[in-house]
Amino acid sequence: MCTWLSQQVEAQGAARGVSDWMKVTAINVMYDHPVSAPYDHALLLDFVDPAQGVGARVGIELSATSARELVRAIEAALASTEAVNDLEQQAHI
């Protein structure tokens, strides 16, 4: 299945990336003081692989509004007709 359905949400925040693909084995989520995004508090998302050390991390800091928009877009992507059909066929995912 190829949905070709992409949503772009406007966002305010900051990100810290890695140079190439990395395995992600956990996501740390917290609402707290950000390091780089210019807010007193932000939604902090760290996609990590702790077994590979602390540098195996994609860190995202989003304003609360951007984080809610992201949640909405994720939910919308998963609720698209093709996604729902696909998920029904792959109930194990």
Binding site: M30, S36, L44, D46, V48, G53, V54, R57, G59
Partner: peptide, 15 residues
Amino acid sequence: RGPGHWADVAAAGRA
């Protein structure tokens, strides 16, 4: 929690 970039080390500590 390191070694690593201070921000990654801090992120691991906060988690």
